[in-house]
Amino acid sequence: MAESLYEIVEEPIQVESLIKKVERRESGAITTFIGTVREWTKGKRTIYLQYQAYIPMAVKMLAKIGDEIGDKWPDTMVAITHRIGHLDISDIAVVIAVSSPHRKAAYEANEYAIERIKQIVPIWKREHWEHGETWIGNQLETISYPNGKPNVEDVKND
């Protein structure tokens, strides 16, 4: 396989291309997670988003998530692409595809991937609200890392 399983891109993401990357004859299940730009968050209207990444480290951390999944769910195969730059409402920010012989692992590994992305991958979202703008992850949700490293327990379901 010449193509990369872990990518940060500036162009729209094609879901089918990620599905193709994880297709195997031994698969019986493929799950995908598609993160899209939502218009309303807690009563505030988003106009558009900007994502910024520390690209080489972000790719490394995506690959690290893939390695973690390989340890926890040995028969799975994972591909992740995250888009950066300007994204409008309903645009796709991230796609995670997981294939597995059996479905349970495909769901679990997929959900694990998005939780880890929100913990360790150096990507930042700037929300452009109807009235103002802000980098998410600092002012709104004051998270700090007392242990030096991001922790599984920090994750919220958003």
């Binding site: 991230v94 929100k118 150096p122 930042w124 600092n138 949700e141």
Partner: peptide, 10 residues
């Protein structure tokens, strides 16, 4: 060295 504010990808 890179300073990494709390991340907000996904």
């Amino acid at each position: 060295v890179a300073f990494i504010p709390p991340v907000s990808g996904g």
